[in-house]
Each structure stands twice: as C-alpha cells, then as structure tokens.
Nucleic acid binder design. Sequence first.
DNA 1: CAAGTTTCTGCAAAGGATTGCAGTGTGCTG
DNA 2: CAGCACACTGCAATCCTTTGCAGAAACTTG
Lengths: 339, 339
Amino acid sequence: MSVTIHDVAHQARVSASTVSRAFTTPEMVRTSTRERVLRVADEVGYTPNRAARGLITGKTANIGLIVPDLGNPLFPAILKGAQARALLADHAVFLADTDENPDLEVNLIKAMVKQVDGIVLCSSRMSESQLRGVLNLTDLTFLNRKVSGVPVVLIDSADGMRQAVEHLAALGHKKAAYLSGPPTSWSNRERRKGLRAAARTTGVECVELGPFAPKFEAGLQAADLVLATDVTAVLAFNDLIALGVLNRLADRGVAVPDEMSVIGFDDIAFAAMCTPPLTTVFTPKESAGRAAVELLLDWLDKKSLGHTGGTQRTLGTQLIVRSSTAPPPPVSAGSVGRA
Amino acid sequence: MSVTIHDVAHQARVSASTVSRAFTTPEMVRTSTRERVLRVADEVGYTPNRAARGLITGKTANIGLIVPDLGNPLFPAILKGAQARALLADHAVFLADTDENPDLEVNLIKAMVKQVDGIVLCSSRMSESQLRGVLNLTDLTFLNRKVSGVPVVLIDSADGMRQAVEHLAALGHKKAAYLSGPPTSWSNRERRKGLRAAARTTGVECVELGPFAPKFEAGLQAADLVLATDVTAVLAFNDLIALGVLNRLADRGVAVPDEMSVIGFDDIAFAAMCTPPLTTVFTPKESAGRAAVELLLDWLDKKSLGHTGGTQRTLGTQLIVRSSTAPPPPVSAGSVGRA
DNA sequence: CAAGTTTCTGCAAAGGATTGCAGTGTGCTG
DNA sequence: CAGCACACTGCAATCCTTTGCAGAAACTTG
C-alpha cells in the first residue's frame, strides 16, 4: 500500500533502524549514510507513519479541540488561533462540535482520548461530576472555565463587564438589563459577577433577564422582554444576542442608540459590520486559542519532570466603543414609541 | 499508562483475541463470555486504541478536512455539517486551515495522509500541478472544485448567479458590476460563467471588477471602485465582500437599495442580520459538508470492489430576496450624491 | 601494528490491536 | 461408548516504528 520505512531501508541498503535514526536522531548516523537515506526517502515519498510512531513513543503529535458550537463565530476564531499554534509545533488538531450538549461532549472526549496527547476544551458545558469523570482520561486544558490542577486560559470577562457598565454610567444611564447566557457557562458567571460589582460602584441598577441561548434568535426574543422593562441600556451575554436585539429593536421602531443603548460581548467580526456598529467588549479569541494550545504543549513537556500544579493564564479584554451606545433619552421621552 | 486490551483480557480471564472479538465480531464469542468481557471492559474504562487498530486494519476511522480560511463563516458552516456526518459514521475529523496558501495546503495534506482514510478539500486553491502531486497520496474528495476521477460535490453557483441577474433585470437594472473573487477559485469561475450567460439572455450589461480577496475589507475597497462606474447594482463574489460594500456605501452616503442594489453570495448567517438585510444567494453549506463526507465514505467502502469512476453531486442554490435590492433610481438621480 | 576508543549500524523486542489457524471442549449421532 | 462436527477460544504473526543493546567498522594512540 503506502511506502514504509522498510522500503526506504531496502532501497538505501541499510536497516530500518538506520532510516528511523536518520529522521529522529540524525547525529547518530554517518553523514554520507544519512544523506543517502534521506535522498531515497524523498525519492519514494516516504513520511513516517505517525500512528505507528505514536504507538511506541506514547506521543501522537495530535491534539484535540472541542467547542460547543461552530455556528458562533467566537469558536472558529479560537480554533484558527489554536490550529495555527499547533501547526507551529508540528501537531495536528482533531476537531469536534458538541452542539452545546454536555453528554455528547463527554463521549467525544472519550472517543478522542487515544489519538491525542491532550485536549483543549473551549467553554466546556460539562457538569462538575462529568468533568471529574474525564479529568484523568488524558491531559486537558480549559479555555474559559476554571478548573484547579490543570492548565486553564481565562478571558477576564468580569473586567470587560466593568468597562461596559462604567461606560454606560459615564453616559448617564441609571438602569440597564443584562441578558444572561448559558447557566453552565463560566463566562456567564464571570460576566454577572463583573456586572454586579460594577453596578454597586457606579450606582447603575442592573436587572437580569434570561438565561438565553447564545444565539441570534435568542436576541430577537430578548429584545421584547427588554422593552417591557424601563431600562435604557442592554448588556448582552454575547454579540450574537446583541445583534438579535439590534434587529428586533429596529423592527419595533426603537432607535439605537438614541432610545436604547446596546452593548455586546466578544467583538466578533460582524459587530463592526452591522448598523449601527456595535459597542462591544473585545476578547482576544485567536490569542486565547494560541495560548490554550501553548499551555497544553508546555504542560505535556513538563510532565516527565513532575508537575508543578496547574498553570493559569488570564487574557485582558477591551471595551470597543462604536455607535450602539449613547446617553439615555430624556426621561419624558423614555417611554415614547413603546407599547 | 492507559488501559489496554490485555488488561481487560486478564481481568476477564480470557485472551486478548477474545476481547478483540467481543468488540469486533461479537457473534463469534459465547454469550456468557462476551457479557463478562464487555462488563469488565466497561468497568475499567477500556476503549480500543484506534491507532493500533488502524495499523493492522489499514483504516483509521479518521478523515481530514482542509479549508482556506476559518475566518470566512462559509467554512465553519461546511465544517459543522461535515463533522456531524463523520460523527454518525463514528469517524473523527482532522481540521486544517491553509490561510488561502496553496503551498501550505499541500504540506498539510502530506502531514495528514497517514492518519486519515481520506481528505475533504474545500475550495482547494492548489494549482493543477500541485493537485496532481497529491492526488494519489490518499483518497481525496473535493468540495467546490471540479476534478475528474474522484468524488466531488459542487454547489451550482452558475445557476445562483443566473437567479441573481434575472432578479436585477426584473427590477429594471441595465448595468451591474461583478466583484470577482480569487482567480484560482472554481466557484468564482462558475459565478462568472453564470453571470455572462445571464447577462446575454437578460440584456443586463455586466462589468467585472477585481479580483478581490473574499473578505470584508476587500468590499470596502471595492465599493469606491463601483461608485466610479455608472452601474446601479453590484453582485459580489460572496457575502463578506457584499457586507464591506454595504458598509462603505453607507459611509459614502449612498443609499442601499434606493441608489444602489447589492447582492451577495452564500447567505452566511449575518446576511440576514445586517442593515439592510442582504439579498443573497443561499448555498447549502452544511449539506455540502455532509455530502462531501458521505461521498468520501461511500468511495472508501466501494474501494475494495474496483471503482466505478468519480461520483459527482451537485447541490442547488436559491436566491434569497431581502432588502438590499430594489429598482434602480430614475436616470436623472443616478449620479446624485456621488463625487 | 596491536589494542583501545569511538562511531555507526543492525538485531530484536515492544507498543496495542486484529486475524488465520489450530486446539479445546461440548453435544450429537450411530 | 466411540467418533465427529461444531462452536469457542488461544497462539502467534502482523501492521510500522522506535530504541536498548551488542556487534562491526573506523580511527587513535603507543
């Protein structure tokens, strides 16, 4: 079928061992021999079979990456960073999409385990007990979920939320709504935490609506709930929801930002492309993907010398002010145009 | 390290062969034995090592998927479909992003070859000669690129373009611009073909601008070029470019659709979310991903009995009329508001 | 030139699973 | 009760590489 190490060995009149060494420990084989071997290998198009190699070395040079939903642009961005970083280290990546389903997540992990050196879990939706069940199956690294004893990369959502609330406060808003995301999401918990803290210090009153699925359609639904309250600003769990809100508000004839301010989260590419361009909190998506892979790889390297305990890397966020936020309307006009 | 077939064999007081058979050919092992083996396997958490299995069976139960750019929402959508279909067949997927770079594409293919049963190439940007070089490395299936002798799934872009041009003609447009995509893209060639044919039959004059990278930023750039012509409508290679055009036109104070009609291609999720909602040609992205995997898997199945020649599946498209298209402005107003 | 190093190279085992072939045990038949 | 067939199960080879160990070759040195 395909060309093996023995084919090369035979052609080059050496043993398989020598061919192997010519690739993995070149300094162990005489220059002239090595050159001949490599030339033959190149001629016949030989590349080592990684599965076979992995069998003996215990390293597959593959990593897994699991995301909740590729339909959310956040994840392709993370994935892109992760893939690029893995490529640098000459690793390939297995991808799986759980469709926001924790049980599927567990199964996908189990299926992957044997073919990878470790797995990056993005915004894992697993319960604590499910998590414990998979934790010792392989080396795991978490993105946007806090787990002790293993590498995690976190995006400082709480601080991003602080920036957003302070922005609203500075504009003069007194009352805002938070559209909550998935209850099992660490990011959502952090964002709420940041929200509550900032609400206290700034004096902005915050009501919480939801939870909502992190999707555009949920935003459409949320918008009407928002209009049923007397808030002048909305903070969405993510941009997708914010975009939905924007759309529904336009349909309902509510002007953004004049009658209602809207803030998203993540700064997906489309936040800048919609009308009005969305004020949102930038999160370093590709960097996060890169960082997660890097941490995982470092962790695996250090594994031989006993572990020093889980590493943690926290990435900053930055409010991007665009055109979906403005001072609140004068109080008398606050209820104009609503049902 | 991890639990092997021998651990199970030992625990269950049988040989490794029996454990193997309990999984792969259950009817060959006595019911009572099989149950005991499976129970033990479950208890110790054994799952067969696919790499080892692949070594002997010659099948890895993995497939590769290569895309030009995860930043284009088209590809995550395809990917999602592909991944879901692969999962159904109990296959895992390797993902790679080529960043629109053909040389990298070749290298990524070579790196993957040994770990997969076949690869799906999405909108491959490789040259003909590069393509010939990789064609016999493994089983390849192409998405949106015509290659003879192997399975391909095509999206009928030409017909989508026909629908778009006829739509413009029906609205009364006389002259339109096509913003061309990557020259190496099969889709772009098809779209141009469809455009030219429809231009002839409808009498709409079509000028071609570009080529442009299939990105938002290129659309910003293209918009000004469009305004320098006297067209009343723009057909973009894809939605990303169209969205850029929309944005730049808004900045330039050109009203869409009143002063200029804009049509995109692909119907990515955000086409419906922007303002005005974009008239665009829907392409079945997830279905295409599913179909590509399906064709590949079928192809692999049939491989044992000699091949019957490449299969080809063509998927239809559908113009989605939203709010970015309208009849052209009256002639006198045609140049109002332009530089 | 003999002896001792050093440098290369090959043999063979290992890694986890599958599978053809042969052996064990059971049940049936005559 | 002997003899046979049949249903299970185990042995051992195999897939492709890597790697410890030992032998061969080349080179130094006295």
